[in-house]
Design a protein around this nucleic acid. Sequence first.
RNA 1: GGAGAGGUGGCAGAGUGGUCUAAUGCGCGGGUUUGCUAAACCCGUGAUCGGGUAACCGAUCCGCAGGUUCGAAUCCUGUCCUCUCCGCCA
Length: 429
Amino acid sequence: MLDRKYILDHVDEVLQNCERRGVPADVTGLVSKEKERRELLQEVERLNAESNATAKGIGKASPDERAAIVEKGRQLRAAKDDAQRRHDDLEKEILAIQLQIPNLAHPDAPVGHDDQSNLEVRLGKTPIPKFDFKPLDHLVLGEHHDWIDFEGGARTTGNGFYFLKGEIVLLDLALQQFAVNQLVQRGFIPTMTPDLAKDSILEGIGFIPRGESTQIYSLENMDLSLIGTAEITLGGLYAGKTFDESELPLRLCGISHCYRTEAGAAGRASRGLYRVHQFTKVEMFAYTLPEQSDAIHQELLEIECDLFDALGIPYRVVDTATGDLGGPAYRKYDLEAWMPGRGEAGEYGEVTSTSNCTDYQARRLNVRYKKEGEKGTRFVHTLNGTAIALSRALISVLENYQQADKTVKVPEALKPYLPFEVMGTASIL
RNA sequence: GGAGAGGUGGCAGAGUGGUCUAAUGCGCGGGUUUGCUAAACCCGUGAUCGGGUAACCGAUCCGCAGGUUCGAAUCCUGUCCUCUCCGCCA
C-alpha cells in the first residue's frame, strides 16, 4: 500500500505507474473521495469537540439546565453519528482503492507490459552442459528410478501432488541443509515457520486468500490459509512491531512448505515438479531501514547467484519488467536455471526470485522503526528472496547432472550432506 | 477442548460512569545547587490523524472490534493474546 499523502501529491506519477504495471486502479476517484472525507472528518471533529464541551459542566448544573444539556448532547451525538457514518463509508471506499494501487517501481526496472520485457542482466559461472546423449527430463529420470511418484500423490491427495521416494529425499534434505548453512554463515537467523497464516497477514503481504481466482488454499470456517511462501509468515512475524534502528537490518531465513492452487496454470511448461501444489522452500527475508533496502536487495541476489554457482547449475538473472512485478514489488530479480530436459532442447526456468517491497508491505502490516534522537516512527522496508525452492532445484540438479546411464552425479557442494556421490546406482538404498 | 485470572503510557502500577480524556514511582531530557560523579530539588516527557505560513489548535488512542449512555479505561457483547489449573496428545 502506498502512503495516501504521497498518492495525493503525486497523482500523475501514480497513474503512470499503474499503467506501466498493468494494474488498474481508480486513482482519481481516490483523490476526490479523500478530499470529501477530510471535509467530513473536520465536521466530525467539530461536533465531537462541541459535544465534549457540552458534557463537561454537567456535574454542577441544576435539574433544568441538566435536561437542556442532555437534550443538546443528544442532538450533537445524532449529528456526529451521521457524519461519522458517512465518513466511515467513504474511508472504506478509499482504502479499497488504495489497496489496489501497486507499489512504485524502481526507476531502473525495465518498462514493459509482461515478461517479454524482462531484461537479462547476467549469467551464472557454470556453462550450459554439453551432452553426448539426448538428455532426459527430470520426470522421466524420476519415474525410472522411482524417485518421483505423481500417481501415488494423485491417489492420496489429488492431481499435482507427489511423493518423493528414495535417494531424492536425501538430495532434497541436502539442498535444504546446504542452503540454510550458507545463510547462517551470512548472518541469517534460521527459522521454521508455521505453514498456516491468518488471512489478514496474507493480505498484508499482498496476497488475496479467498475468492474466485485465488492461488491460496484456505481452511473452511477459519480465517487461516496455507501459506504459498514463508515470506508470508516471516513478514507476519513482526506485524505491529516497532524496531529500534539498531536492530536493522534483520536477516531471517525460513524453512516451510509452500502450497499453491496454481489455478488455471496447467500445460506442457508445467510438466513434472515444475508447477506443483506443494513444495518445500528455504526463503530469505529482511527487514531494513529505507536507505538499506537497495543494497540488501543486491545482497539477496548475490546469495542466490552464489548458491547456484556453488551447485554448478547454469542460470541467467533477469531484471523483471514493470508489467510483471505484481503488486508489492518495487524491483524484482529472477534466477532462471538451465533445465536441459525442458522444451525441445533445454530452456531456462525460474528457480528463484528476490523482491524489494520497500514500505509497501510494512505499511499494511504496520512494521515500523524508531531512530535515535528522531521524533516519531517510520515504516521499515521488507525484502524477500528464494534461497532454494526444492521442487525446481531438484529439477535443475537432476537434469544438469544426469549421465548417459540415467544415473545422476551429486554436485560437489552437496557431497558433505550425502552418503553417496552418484544417485541411481542402488548402492545404498 | 474445559475452568479461573489478567491485558492501562518506555517500564512498574493506581483508577470500577462526569471534580484528570489517566494518580504515583522508575526511566529519559533540561535546569538549580555542587571540586567531579552522585544525591536532593524544580520543570518537562507518547503516538496517529486533521487544520494553520507559524506559534498553535482540534480529534482519536487504556489488547482489538462492536454496543449502551448526554458522557465509558470504568457497564454490556464478541474476539485475540498471556498466565494458572484440568483434560487430550506427538
